[in-house]
Design a protein around this nucleic acid. Structure first.
Length: 807
RNA sequence: GCCCGGGUGGCGGAAUUGGCAGACGCACACGACUCAAAAUCGUGCGGAUAACAUCCAUGAGAGUUCGAUUCUCUCCCCGGGCACCA
């Protein structure tokens, strides 16, 4: 008979809540603290199967750590600011706040149904002033240190909506709202100087127990490259063009320079440019290029020469031309490159198209070759005067030295642009005064609260909807008391998630973001579980914040997350990404109703390798459900039939079963610790199968041990069975059982008999049998004799494993 | 193009200091129970063959080895990330 999961799960969830089992104390005598964290959800309205897949197996791990004897903190909250709330508000006429808070209420109910050990008393909701006050406070600390600054940058601008868009909102170069082509527009925005931390963000990756691919993604994202900056003097001028290169060795082969369209010198040199009109045309065209255009242009280079401008190659004093092309990026390096068509693919393409000279200076064989394409490998110098025949890597340093160039390190990633022209976010705590300029809001005036407004559309001037609230906008300058205006942009919501793990430690603190003793108690996070989609943004920003707060003396560690694991993605039954339009969405609520949270937990653990994920099998969960029913049948009946045997029951079945039990205790523990939830469940299944076969040999002690190792996976049914066995206290204060090293040793082992590496027979032998003993028995086997057609050349013997006779 | 993953039955997946390929589960088939169905229980389940024997089989091909899903090389395919970064 199927057990009543609804009744049981509700009953024990209530019981745990009443007993405050999972309210984490900051200190428990004799126990080490363990901070276990999952990436908090965005309150979209409904918990979906992806949330379950992140949180349920992660909770299995947390519960296991708890049973191992750690004082575990496993908190949860909501990443509650963000665009969807605004869109819902515009569409349905409810305020973003109302929408968000009601979603949080619903999702709280859903998450609680999972039966996780979350400490709900520490819930953090980032859209509440108590929380975002500290976003503003951290911003001000960064401002003081010069790490938060305002700058004119090129941003995605939709001319129809008259707003700046985030990159995610301008994918493919089209505005998400209206489909208009996005332009690059210069706007003044707030940025955080994350690039100051580039080297530390890179180096400290080595200290982390994170998936390799995540670390390498961060490495690529930061994109460190070592090179040199070289000045090219402009003819008949005091000015110079500075370029960055990693290949200073190719300087003798430079045949022209290329500037990015945004390069400031183009304007400065305007008077001397002879072909002004075609240059202006080109600049105008590249401004309107969408991302898509740029991508398709990779193959076909475009550009225009700055006629009338010549520069001097500092190595050989040759006079060379200067071009403008959008294959050079304004934001990287110096926005200008020295072109070496012989040794750079892009320059090669460009030179071919515009019929510019190509001079080889590095050669594989020390001779001048006919180049069909750029030669990018190492070699020896040619066409380079006295440097000829030197290996290019040695020539590199010589050249840098001889022309007095500066070595320089460049990074691909940029400072973090945090200004958003949106309503539903943290107001940036800055005031602009005509007299005093930019004035940070004094800390005592925090939080700058988000005003309630009615219209969430931008004001048409590229400012956030906050500008529409006069009450918010007009303010007295904190310095001179004169009339001033507030900054109306809000912060990127990634700010919220960059430090939320610290707030869980002290969520109600009014004096600081968290008390330092509490931080000391818990941080850093020992295990962090969440999706791989956050490999660069969130996980990089959080590391940056931690390093900043460390430098300010608030934290005594440099990395927030010691270990990190990713869950895979659950796809629809059709193998496609779940989406409403495809109609392949699996609703966890329905499944919980039908099979219960325990079945869900077991199946999610079992269905795939955790980091891999895969398609949802609608019938698969039946296996988990059947398994739990069989566990229930077995252990519930033991009690009622009063068949419980004394703990020292004897007999072969009992002995075998007990050995398997202890092996399983070991295996499940190791598997969970290694995030191999699927094989852990499978060993629980194997043990159950054996116990069912040898029912009479199962005693109470075994049943209890089985229930204990099942607790992390199926906590509700485990509690029910535990207390049914006559235990008065919760199974959740029980420790993970210890396995007996002695017991798991097999007395007899199966020895494989191979002939020429092929398995021919197996024999059961006492552990530690010698080669002679085994050989003797093996040779006497009829089956083996049959195959022993020739003389044995040699015999390979692996103790307790196999014997291989080579003929 | 570059950098990571990955490719094993009908399906999800096990198995690694190189040593029984396919654990465990799903699906399926047959049987038991039932008037019947569902549920449950039992048996079978990579391919070839009459076969309990034997041979073949872990994307393809080669190599190292007594022995390769596991190590090396070449190639193909799938997923993800980055992508004119000088």
């Amino acid at each position: 008979m199927a057990y009543n999961h609804k009744k049981i799960e509700a009953k024990w969830q209530k019981y745990w809540k009443q007993k405050k089992f999972f309210t984490a104390k900051d200190n428990v005598k004799g126990k080490k603290n363990y901070y276990h964290l999952v990436m908090f959800p965005y309150p979209s309205g409904n918990a979906h199967i992806g949330h379950w897949y992140n949180y349920a197996p992660a909770d299995v791990f947390a519960r296991f750590k708890r049973m191992e004897g750690y004082n575990v903190l496993s908190p949860i909250g909501f990443d509650a600011f963000g665009l969807p709330a605004e869109n819902a508000a515009i569409k349905r006429g409810v305020s973003p706040e109302t929408w968000t808070l009601s979603n949080i209420k619903n999702m709280t109910r859903q998450l609680q149904a999972m039966g996780n050990i979350y400490d709900w008393s520490r819930m953090v909701v980032t859209c509440l002033p108590d929380y975002y006050k500290w976003n503003q406070w951290i911003f001000l600390q960064m401002y003081k240190k010069g790490l938060a600054y305002r700058k004119k940058v090129a941003a995605n601008w939709c001319p129809s909506c008259k707003t700046v868009l985030a990159n995610e909102q301008a994918e493919g170069g089209k505005c998400e709202r209206c489909g208009t082509s996005v332009e690059q527009k210069e706007v003044t925005q707030w940025l955080l100087k994350i690039t100051d931390y580039a080297d530390r963000l890179l180096e400290d990756l080595d200290t982390l127990d994170w998936p390799e691919r995540t670390k390498s993604m961060q490495k690529n994202w930061i994109g460190r490259s070592e090179g040199a900056e070289i000045d090219f003097p402009i003819e008949e001028s005091e000015l110079k063009i500075k370029v960055f290169t990693t290949r200073a060795d190719t300087l003798p082969g430079v045949t022209y320079l290329v500037l990015a369209p945004e390069h400031p010198l183009i304007k400065i040199l305007d008077a001397r440019i002879r072909n002004k009109n075609s240059v202006r045309d080109y600049l105008e065209k590249s401004k309107h290029k969408t991302e898509l255009d740029r991508l398709t242009d990779v193959k076909e280079k475009s550009g225009v020469e700055l006629q009338g401008i010549k520069v001097i190659n500092p190595f050989n004093k040759k006079i060379i031309s200067v071009w403008v092309s959008d294959y050079v990026l304004g934001g990287y390096g110096t926005g200008a490159v020295m072109a070496v068509p012989a040794h750079d693919e892009r320059d090669f393409d460009f030179a071919k198209k515009f019929e510019l000279p190509i001079i080889q200076v590095v050669s594989e064989n020390g001779k001048q070759n006919k180049l069909e394409a750029a030669f990018v490998n190492d070699g020896v110098m040619v066409n380079s005067g006295e440097l000829d025949n030197l290996p290019n890597n040695i020539a590199k340093d010589r050249i840098i030295e001889s022309i007095g160039a500066k070595k320089k390190i460049n990074y691909k990633f940029r400072d973090w642009l945090i200004s958003r022209q949106r309503y539903w976010g943290t107001p940036i705590p800055v005031i602009y005064c005509k007299e005093c300029g930019t004035v940070p809001v004094p800390e005592k005036d925090l939080p700058v609260k988000l005003p309630k407004i009615k219209d969430y559309l931008p004001d048409g001037l590229g400012r956030s909807p906050l500008a529409k609230s006069e009450k918010f906008l007009k303010v007295r300058c904190p310095e001179c008391g004169g009339p001033a205006e507030r900054e109306t942009d809000t912060m990127d919501t990634f700010i919220d998630s960059s430090w939320y793990y610290l707030r869980y430690l002290d969520p109600k603190n009014k004096k600081s973001f968290a008390e330092s003793l509490k931080i000391k108690n818990w941080m850093p996070v020992k295990m962090y579980v969440g999706g791989p989609e956050h490999a660069v943004m969130h996980l990089l920003y959080a590391r940056f914040f931690t390093k900043f707060l460390h430098d300010e003396g608030y934290l005594d560690f440099k990395e927030p997350f010691v270990s990190l694991r990713h869950q895979g993605m659950i796809l629809g039954p059709d193998g496609q990404k779940m989406s409403k339009s495809r109609g392949n969405v699996i609703d966890p609520d329905e499944l919980v109703e039908k099979f219960g949270a325990d079945s869900m937990r077991i199946y999610l653990c079992f269905m795939a390798e955790y980091s891999q994920g895969g398609p949802w099998d609608p019938t698969g969960i039946l296996g988990a459900y059947r398994f739990l029913n069989r566990v229930n049948d077995l252990f519930a009946k033991i009690k009622f039939d009063k068949k419980v045997k004394p703990d020292n029951g004897s007999g072969k079945d009992h002995k075998d079963l007990n050995r398997l039990l202890h092996k399983t205790i070991k295996k499940v523990g190791e598997d969970v610790a290694g995030f191999k939830f699927n094989t852990a469940v499978s060993s629980l299944m194997i043990l159950l199968n054996e116990m069912e076969k040898k029912k009479d040999a199962v005693n109470k002690n075994m049943a209890e041990n089985y229930i204990k190792i099942m607790v992390p996976f199926a906590p509700h049914i485990a509690e029910e069975l535990w207390q049914n066995l006559g235990n008065k206290k919760s199974v959740h204060i029980e420790a993970w059982p210890e396995y007996s090293k002695h017991l798991i040793e097999d007395e007899e082992v199966e020895i494989l008999i191979q002939i020429n590496g092929k398995l021919r027979d197996k024999i059961l032998m006492p552990k530690g049998s010698s080669q002679q003993e085994i050989e003797k028995i093996a040779m006497s086997k009829e089956k083996i004799k049959e195959f022993l057609t020739g003389k044995p050349k040699k015999t390979i013997f692996v103790p307790d494993k196999l014997i291989n006779i080579v003929i």
